[in-house]
């Protein structure tokens, strides 16, 4: 912490430079943390920026997915809780867009324009529609847990300092969301026949998108692994998720919507081979609800341009 006036008024520290990619990767392998003012290799800057932009977009569009059912929340405190949770997601987007903008590739308005024009991506799960209240719970239980596992794995060994610091808060809040999802699931699982059936139907819709959230098996030359952004391979995270959630859901009397699901004494729960063409199409904004989701966000953004213009002029 700066303590003297000179320290407090000094500009940012001079960024570090590396002679070449080998030197940079050696720095990362030794546990080095890259800061925004460092002269990082352009390939690293671009790859990390894209990853953070995808994360930011996903937090924002995830908030919109959950927004649909907030007006119908079956209780006032539940409405407050889901509002607070969605507010967290929007808050995460807010933080992540700042971190991404500081990387100097795009400003926040440019990132939002690209998102609303369909030029950039967001996670597959937010291209699906929440059809019933139980879908809202499935998102809280299944999707938040998958997102939590993914983000925690990034936080554990993240080499980009500003992202790691923001992830510390995001992971903590997502942990709350995950526990909230567990409590909400219990209400439906142990509730009336209608509630139990609703969640089974939601599980049928959300199991596979949640499993796909981890992505296809990581390639051996994944730069995000090599540069210490991701700390675990996609298939490792996916397998751990399946091991945890299959028995939990079965324990509540639900059926995993996978006819090929089997238990191997050595490997644990094994799911059917995934057809990744669905994920690829979804990530190209060709998912079941992609068009409506993007149109809602883009329409609101366009309709309120006069507010942003007025504030900019008044600043």
């Amino acid at each position: 912490m700066p303590t003297t006036l000179a320290e407090r008024t000094a500009g940012p520290p001079v960024g570090r430079t590396w002679d070449d990619m080998d030197a940079f990767e050696a720095f990362l392998d030794a546990g080095g943390i890259v800061e925004a003012h460092d002269d990082m290799p352009e390939a690293y800057r671009l790859e990390v920026f894209r990853f953070i932009e995808l994360h930011a977009n996903s937090e924002l569009m995830g908030g919109l997915t959950e927004r649909d059912w907030i007006p119908k929340a079956p209780g006032l405190r539940l409405k407050q809780i889901f509002l607070a949770k969605t507010q967290d997601e929007i808050g995460h987007a807010h933080l992540l867009y700042m971190v991404a903008a500081d990387m100097g590739k795009k400003s926040r308005p440019e990132m939002l324009d690209d998102l609303f024009a369909g030029r950039t991506r967001f996670h597959n799960v937010f291209h699906y529609q929440a059809v019933t209240w139980a879908d809202q719970i499935a998102i809280a239980y299944l999707v938040d847990a998958a997102a939590f596992a993914s983000q925690r794995a990034v936080f554990q060994n993240c080499s980009y300092g500003p992202y790691k610091r923001v992830l510390k808060r995001i992971v903590a809040e997502e942990g709350f969301h995950m526990r909230h999802g567990e409590e909400m699931l219990m209400r439906l699982a142990e509730g009336s026949e209608i509630q139990h059936r609703m969640f089974q139907e939601a599980l049928d819709r959300w199991w596979m998108p949640a499993v796909q959230l981890f992505g296809p098996d990581s390639s051996d030359d994944d730069p995000l692994m090599r540069w210490h952004i991701k700390s675990q391979r996609n298939e490792t995270l996916r397998h751990a998720y399946v091991q945890k959630y299959v028995p939990l859901l079965q324990g509540y009397g639900f059926t995993i919507p996978d006819e090929g699901l089997r238990h191997d004494p050595d490997a644990g729960w094994l799911i059917s081979d995934i057809d990744w063409s669905e994920l690829r199409a979804t990530m190209r904004n060709g998912g079941p609800d992609s068009r409506r989701r993007i149109a809602t966000a883009a329409g609101s953004h366009a309709d309120t341009a006069w507010v942003r213009e007025a504030l900019e002029a008044a600043a």
């Binding site: 924002l60 908030g63 919109l64 927004r67 907030i70 007006p71 409405k79 509002l83 969605t86 507010q87 929007i90 987007a93 807010h94 867009y97 809602t296 966000a297 609101s300 309120t304 341009a305 507010v307 942003r308 504030l311």
Partner: peptide, 10 residues
């Protein structure tokens, strides 16, 4: 509450 996510700015 219906404005969450669609206000003019974050």
């Amino acid at each position: 509450s219906t404005w969450i996510g669609v206000c003019p700015f974050l």
